[in-house]
């Protein structure tokens, strides 16, 4: 028939996959707090630095 049916099906499936990912993200609470993660992200470096210090001390 036509390739357009396949394309449409694929694109809708992709769209639905993204949509379910969004719903999952909301469900796990990712949208409940949009501030703390932005700060938390910056701490990762601090933690690593400190761990290094500890290993050096030992």
């Amino acid at each position: 028939m036509s390739v357009i049916y396949i394309l449409i099906t694929v694109s809708i499936i992709v769209a639905i996959v993204f949509f379910t990912l969004f719903v999952k993200a909301v469900k796990t609470g990712q949208y409940d707090d949009s501030y703390t993660p932005s700060v938390r992200m910056l701490f990762e470096d601090e933690l690593v630095k400190e761990n290094n210090k500890q290993t050096k001390n030992k």
Binding site: D32, D33, Y35, T36, R40, L42, F43, E46
Partner: peptide
């Protein structure tokens, strides 16, 4: 941000704590 950092590192003070997550707002 110090508060967030400290409270999320509670397990260093008390090993029985397995995780602590701050909601800042």
């Amino acid at each position: 941000s110090s508060c967030i950092w400290l409270l999320e590192n509670l397990q260093k003070l008390q090993t029985e704590v397995s995780s602590s997550i701050v909601n800042f707002p």
